[in-house]
Design a protein around this nucleic acid. Structure first.
Lengths: 139, 139
DNA sequence: GAAAAAATTTTGCCTATAAGAAAAAATATT
DNA sequence: AATATTTTTTCTTATAGGCAAAATTTTTTC
């Protein structure tokens, strides 16, 4: 099982590869706001655990295992962003909050949040009712 | 700012004091499933940061700061448990999931989850509609 | 009520994870 | 080929926990 920190890296690597076709140490460092040296160390660990194939100085690619995990992580991340957005959390908090909690929820909870998102998406009235509760509540 | 781990300790100490009037190293160790020596170390740190007053071998009490923080942490914990319960997460996952995420949500998100819980609590029909979505979704 | 035994707490030292800083190595650019 | 950029290595730091031995307190027994 990957640690939370490993998951952060796998997720970002997966996203970078999706969007640009490759992932570089410096991109990852920038995205996660850590030093390149920390990235190198994590990449070596992810290679050891077979989430990716690493050749030093040359780069790395995700293994099947890495891709599969990455896909789930991205799905989960997006779902949680949707959820926080729907319930009205401010944009500037969403990314950090998702970043913080995504590694700590059971798949059971993720599934239930998925249902909840569907519940709101399939009937706009429900979102409006929620906004009503919020409005009433705030004063 | 307390670290997540410090928050765990403050929360448990607060709960123990609420329910029993005092908190012992061994109780905390048992609850958190760590060694007593780890508890002692954290208690010393919490004393240094003025969340509690510590006298070695004799015990400790929460400061005003510690009580205030503890109260908020317990409120947040209970809110998140309510939330997961309402959306239908299984009992055996709730405690761990809350334990995992509670330290990583902004108060903005906590407030919005609070509204959401209120939304469901004030009209049982809404919970039933959610269950409908879940049922439809599962097959 | 003092001595011995048991339980609790603390200290000290070690481990693991993850990150930071600076220097070294490899690669890319001009 | 010289220079600039990127990546890696090495060493250090911070947090938190594990384990064993020592210190202290509490309980039991006589």
């Amino acid at each position: 099982m990957p640690t939370p920190s490993m998951e952060d890296y796998i997720e970002i690597i997966y996203n970078l590869i999706e969007s640009k076709g490759y992932a570089r140490v410096s991109d990852i460092a920038e995205t996660l706001e850590v030093h390149p040296s920390s990235v190198t160390k994590m990449v070596q660990k992810l290679d050891k655990d077979e989430y990716l194939l690493y050749e030093k100085y040359r780069g790395f690619i995700l293994t099947e295992k890495g891709k599969k995990v990455g896909e789930r992580l991205v799905f989960r991340h997006e779902l949680l962003e949707d959820f926080l957005e729907i319930i009205g959390v401010e944009k500037e908090n969403i990314y950090n909050d998702v970043e913080g909690i995504e590694h700590h929820l059971s798949w059971n909870s993720i599934d239930r949040v998925g249902d909840l998102v569907k519940y709101f998406k399939e009937d706009q009235k429900r979102v409006e009712d929620l906004k009503e509760v919020q409005k009433r509540n705030q004063q």
